[in-house]
Amino acid sequence: MDKLKIGIPRALNYYHYKDLWINFFKALDCDIIISPPTNKAIIKDGLKYANDEMCLSLKIYLGHVSYLKDRCDYILIPRIDNYGLSDQTCTNFLSLFDIVNNIFNVKILNYNIDYCHGENEISAFINMGKVLHKKRWDSIKAYQFASVKANKECKKKVLNSFHKLKSDQTKVLLIGHSYNLHDAYLGQSIIYLLESLGIEVIMSDGFDPKMTNKLASSLSPSLYFKYSKEAIGTIDIVRNNIDGIIFLTAFPCGPDSLVNELVFRKITLPYLNLVIDDIDSLTGIETRIESFVDIIEQKKQLIN
C-alpha cells in the first residue's frame, strides 16, 4: 500500500504547531506535503475563494488550501476552540473547518480541541490516528515523540531570542500573530526591510508561550484570546532591552483591533502600528518604517 499523503497549508495554525504535526505524521509513517511559502499566485487564488470581508490571513489560508487540493489524500485542518475559558481563540479558528469544507470539495483530516468540553490535545490526536487507520498505541507514541521534539524546538527558539536581546544594535520588538510574522508575504518582507536598515528584530513568538501567557495579565487582566495573550505578554520580558515596538496586523483582525488599542494606551515605548491589507507594493510601508527607525535611533542617541 502506498503511503498516505497529508497536505498541510503553510498558513494560520501551521506556525503554531508545525513541529508537532510534522513529527507526528513522520512517526506514523505518512508522507507530508507542505504548501510553498505564500506568493502572488496563492494570494490571487485565495482572493478568488474568499469573502471580501475575511481577514487577510484567512484569505491566504484559502489560497494555500486551493494549492493543495489536488496534490494529496487529506488536508489537515484543525478546529481549535479553546484551551480553557481564559484561553480562547479567534472565531476564525472555530469555523475554519466548516468554511473550507463548504468552499472546497476535498477530504479533510480534522481534529478538535475544546478543553471546556473535555476534548484535549492527546485525545484529538488519537482520533486523528483512527481516521488514518493507525493503532491507538502508535498514535500515542507518535504524539509523545512529536511533543518532545516540539518542546526542544521551542527551547532553541527562546535561547535564540534571548541571544538577540543582548546585541548592541538598535532592537525592535515585532508584535503580531505568528502566522503573520512568518508569512513570506506579510511579516518576512517587513523583517527584511528592518534588517536591511541595521535593526535587530525580536519577534513576539520567540518566547515560551506558557510564560508570556501569564505575563499578559499585567497589561490586560481580562484578556481571553490565547494568541493575543502570548503576543502582548512578550512586552513585559523585553521592556527594558528594546528601543521600539512595531505592531503588525492583518486587516481586519478581530482580536487585534481591541487588544492593540488597549496596549497602545498603556505602554510608554515608541510604537508603530502597521495594518496590512492586500498589498501590491511595499513602498508606503517602507517609508513609514524608515521614519520610525529614524525616530528611535535619534532617541537612542539623545539618551546616550
Binding site: 469573502n51 470581508e53 475575511m54 481577514c55 479567534c90 472565531t91 476564525n92 472555530l94 469555523s95 466548516d98 468554511i99 463548504n102 468552499i103 481586519p252 478581530g254 483591533s257
Partner: peptide
C-alpha cells in the same frame, strides 16, 4: 455589522 468575524465565516455557508 461590518467586521463581525463569526458572521463573515458563516456567510459563504
Amino acid at each position: 455589522s461590518s467586521f463581525c468575524t463569526p458572521e463573515i465565516g458563516a456567510m459563504p455557508i
